Each structure stands twice: as structure tokens, then as C-alpha cells.
Amino acid sequence: MSSRRNFLQQLAASVIAFPLIPADASLLHGNRDKETYDGPPLRVAILGLGSYGTRVAEAMKDCKRARLTGIVSGTPSKITAWQQKYGIPEKNCYNYQNFDSIKDNPDIDVVYVITPNSLHKDFSIRAAKAGKHVICEKPMAINAKEGQEMVAACKKANVKLLVGYRMHFEPKTLEIIRMRKDGELGKIMFFQGLSGFVAGDPNQWRLNKALAGGGAMMDIGIYSINGARYMVGEEPVWVTAQETKTNPEKFKPGVDETIQFQMGFPSGAVASCLSTYNMNNLDRFFLNGSKGYAELQPATGYGPIKGKTNKGELTQPHMTHQTVQMDEMAGIILDGKQPIVPVDGEEGVRDLKIIDAIYEAVKTGKKVVLK
């Protein structure tokens, strides 16, 4: 772990920056096994072979439209292990130094960047310059400025930039969004988002500001930010925020432990949220309207998601989030389909602008108006 961490720190310091399909009801509501697809698959290279990269690779075994065809890693032993496990040919394996030569590989359509946050921008831009579409884990960058640079680079290279918002394809989540859009909940008045867990190892990259770009807000708090936006159906116009830090040795300057934050929306709806690395059992969304309510708990975990509304329990079946995500993203990239909730780079920048504003509100103690 130590050598891996040191390598990533050196890489972060040295890497040079280069200048909803409308959800198919059968796909998202339980009949995936009956779906067939005979067209060309989306050929994916995963960059960053850690725990989440492994989760995505395993989920892709069940994909109908996306296939793992390449890997990129700074750890030679991981490349060897993944080659054997997933049958990746040597010509489709890259390290962080020769990665740019991926431009000459016709077996790869898209690079999925799954590294520590501070490395997202540079690897995404390198992939775009190599002519490959980009899927980037969230947060897509460490601030909105970097996110906008990624969007601009992908537009210039004429490739798509998507962000790994797996919840945007989750059936119970989409049902609540449908109910809100159809007016079944009435006028939306309040959202609560609780996102947190106890971060264990004090030496993990998530507690290293140079790699993570912050603390809990960058990792888990973004779920409540993003959730508030798609649940309320509006963009916030102001934020306020307060930070609590009980363990300054573990949570160094610039690494937030707990932040409570509030958001206001144009309609008058308000959101009250909590982001923390110091409390477990916090994964809940609650949406309240004049005619009804909706609740998800757990709301964003790997599943199964559980939920209810004023009309009763939500019963949409659980499917592996990353499997559905990758198949849906294949439709976006290959067919130009539009998801119910956006997953493009602009969507990622919107979340980053709010995170920037939350950190500013913590620092100043003032309400920050969002433009």
C-alpha cells in the first residue's frame, strides 16, 4: 500500500496536463435477461485497476453492449493478473508512461478513468487527445475549473465525456424522478441527503488532499449534492455550509471530516445535507412534496437500494449498478441516446461548482450565491 501510495503521489506531482437514453423499461425494470443485442459492443479500457476498477470489470461480464478489451495501470503485477483473469491481449495493455500510444489501437473505443481524483483530469485529457471517448469516475475533477478544462478538451477532440453516475440508471431512483415529474408528489418543498461512513485507514489516498482534492465531500458528499439536484429537479441558487472536525490528526488541513450544508432552489425548495467520514449508517435520501413523499435508504450504496413513497414500497428489482451503467453508456456513446438524468461532463461540472461553493461557504461562514 505504501509503495502504491508513493507512486501515485509522485505521479500526481509529475503528470503534465495536455493542452438518459430514455431508460428502456425492459432494461431498467427486470427483463434484462430477455434482451439481446447483435450490434458492435462498446470496447472499454479501464485505467486504474484498484478495488472499484475491479468491481466495474466484474460487472461488465454481464453487460450486453459493453466489453472489457483493454487495461491501463502503473503496477505491472496488476496488469499480469488482469490479463490472465479477463483474457486481455498484451497489445491492449498499457502503463502510465506509454498510455498515449493507445491512439493507435482500434480495439478500444473508450477509456474509463478510475484513479484518485487529482489524476482524473490529466488522464482524461490524454485519452481524449488519443481520440478515445472518456468515462471518468466522480468527482470528475478536484474543482470546477479542472472539470471545464476536461469538457473543453473532449469537445476539441470530438469525443464524448461521461461521468460514472451509476445512480442515474437505478430503477427505484428513476421511479421517484418519474413521480416527481408527473406531479404525483406535488410541489417539491424539501430534500434531505445523508451521506457518510467511517473512513478507516488514515494512510489511504482518500485522506490525502493532494490525491483526493478534499475529504468526505469529494468522495461521499457528492452523492447528496447530485441527489438533491435530480430529486428536486432544479439547480440550486445558493449554499451555506458548516464544518466539524473532531480528529485533526487523521483529517489534515484541506481534508474535510464532516460538513453540513444547505442548498436553496429557485422554486423555494430547500435541501439539508450531511457529508461525513466519521459516522456510519448514513445513506438516506428523503424528498417531501405538497402531495406526497419519497424515501430511499440505502440511497446510493451498491445495493440493493430500498425505498418507499406515500403510495407504498418501491418494488423495482435490483440489478448490478455498474452493469446497467455500462450498457446504458454504450447506448449513449454508440447510438447518441439521451439518458433520463444527464451523465455528461457538463453534469459533472455542475456538481463541482456546488462543491467549490460549499468549501467557500465553510471558509467564509457566509451564504454563497451560485451563478
Rank of each mutant, 00 (worst) to 15 (best):
F265T: 08
P139I: 08
L28K: 05
K181V: 05
E249D: 12
S272P: 02
I71D: 04
V232E: 01
H168V: 11
M231P: 10
D38T: 13
V113A: 03
I71T: 04
G183I: 03
I188E: 06
E149Q: 15
H133F: 00
E347A: 14
V324E: 13
G147K: 08
I88P: 06
K64P: 00
V72G: 07
K209G: 07
A157N: 04
F99M: 06
K245H: 11
G193M: 08
L161H: 01
L207Q: 15
S77C: 00
Y230I: 00
M150S: 13
F286H: 02
I225C: 10
V237R: 15
L334D: 07
D109T: 05
G221V: 06
G221M: 07
G292F: 10
G227H: 13
A23T: 10
Y277A: 09
Q316R: 15
N208S: 08
T69C: 00
R43L: 06
E90R: 01
T315I: 15
F285Y: 12
E243S: 14
G183Y: 03
E175I: 12
E149Y: 09
H318S: 06
E137G: 15
E243H: 13
P298F: 10
T364N: 09
S290D: 03
Q260E: 04
E257P: 04
S224Y: 12
P19A: 04
L8F: 08
V159G: 02
D24Q: 12
G233K: 01
A144T: 06
F99C: 04
G289N: 02
I354H: 13
D335K: 14
P116T: 00
K245Y: 09
F286Y: 09
G307L: 09
G233I: 01
A212W: 14
A59C: 05
M179D: 14
P41C: 05
T315M: 14
A361S: 12
A45R: 10
K156P: 00
R178V: 15
I333D: 05
I332N: 05
D107P: 03
E234W: 01
A128L: 01
E347Y: 11
N208M: 14
N280H: 07
L27M: 11
L274Y: 08
I177M: 13
Q83W: 01
S26H: 10
V255I: 01
A157S: 04
G312K: 07
F7K: 13
L194R: 14
E234S: 05
E234A: 05
Y94P: 00
A152T: 08
F265K: 12
